[in-house]
């Protein structure tokens, strides 16, 4: 399984790289967080003491190692604005953002694959053309606009959907879904538009290959030809797209949490940035980076699961 080992090493290297970059960016960022914390009236002595407390007086490499150590121990320091541990703040909001991302991705997959198959089977027919044009349009519409429209037209007309605020899963499952489904749709729609073409083209390309003719030649049903033979092969390129989409979806939560007033990571990030809450921003950036890198790793593993040519390559 050298493939998996290689991919894992790549994951580690990427993480180191990202953490160094993040660290350096926060070093050169304007605006001294310590002064922000203490307010404009603080004197030099106070500033120095706090810097010592936060370890900011130490040389760069020591600070960096400290950051890495903290990252693995779940100790990213305290928030300046909330005066609480950064990890605690993130963990509280994580379920919201995570649910949102997962629901969005599920919507994207559930819509795109059947739609892609439908469209590919009708290549050059008007329904295929219509879907392609319609999704082109979908790509051009900004996320926040989709959100507004959904709030106005669906959220306001149906009781089930909550158009602001969040109902925790532990309180009510339907309530949670009701509060998350519209924001999830908002994130999903533009992503459906993007991934639809990939899925359609992948299926179209695969369905012209020789092995499909062999399958038909055995006398199996058309459903088996498409859903077993063609789809299984199409998933290999499609998984890449869904990996990219998941990263997009996570980015999408930042905007959508604002529009739907969901107290998730995205909102925390925006609040933290506006208050120059340096430890929180750093913590979120690192954890998001971790999530994205891990997703890429999972995608790589999925390749190997889906494609024996990758799995069995020595």
């Amino acid at each position: 399984m050298t493939y998996v080992v290689r991919r894992f090493l790549l994951l580690v290297v990427t993480l180191i790289f990202i953490s160094v970059i993040t660290f350096l960016v926060f070093q050169i960022l304007p605006g001294d967080p310590v002064r922000t914390m203490l307010g404009p009236d603080a004197d030099e002595a106070q500033v120095e003491t706090l810097k010592q407390q936060l370890g900011l007086d130490q040389p760069g490499h020591v600070q960096y190692l400290h950051l890495v150590e903290g990252f693995f121990q779940g100790d990213m320091g305290d928030s300046i604005r909330f005066s609480r541990p950064v990890t605690g703040l993130i963990m509280e909001r994580l379920p919201i953002t995570l649910s949102l991302a997962v629901i969005s991705l599920i919507i994207v997959i559930l819509v795109t694959i059947p739609l892609g198959i439908f469209s590919a089977k009708r290549e050059k027919k008007w329904s295929d053309f219509f879907l392609s044009s319609f999704t082109q349009l979908g790509m051009a519409v900004p996320t926040f606009f989709v959100g507004m429209v959904l709030i106005l037209f669906i959220g306001m007309s149906f009781q089930f959907f909550t158009t602001g605020g969040y109902v925790p899963w532990s309180e009510s499952i339907t309530g949670a879904i009701g509060s998350l489904i519209l924001p999830a749709l908002t994130i999903a729609l533009p992503q459906i538009a993007i991934s639809f073409r990939y899925v359609r083209n992948a299926i179209l390309e695969q369905s012209k290959l020789d092995y499909v003719r062999t399958a038909r030649g055995k006398g199996v049903s058309e459903a088996i030809v498409i859903y077993k033979h063609v789809l299984r092969n199409s998933l290999i390129p499609v998984v890449t797209v869904f990996g990219l989409i998941l990263a997009e979806v996570i980015a999408g939560t930042i905007v959508v949490e604002q529009v739907f007033s969901l107290p998730g990571i995205g909102r925390l990030l925006i609040t933290a940035v506006s208050y120059r809450d340096f430890p929180v921003v750093q913590g979120i950036v690192l954890y998001i980076a971790l999530v994205v890198v891990v997703i890429n790793f999972i995608v790589d593993i999925l390749y190997a699961v889906l494609d024996p040519r990758i799995r069995l390559k020595s």
């Binding site: 092995y211 062999t214 030649g217 055995k218 006398g219 494609d307 024996p308």
Partner: peptide, 29 residues
Amino acid sequence: TAKRMRQIRGKEIAMIYQEPMSSLNPVFT
């Protein structure tokens, strides 16, 4: 009909295709 052809294909009339390598599905044993 398509259904009748499926009964015939493979059972009554079978074909060996010209390109053996690409005629097998790469992801199944």
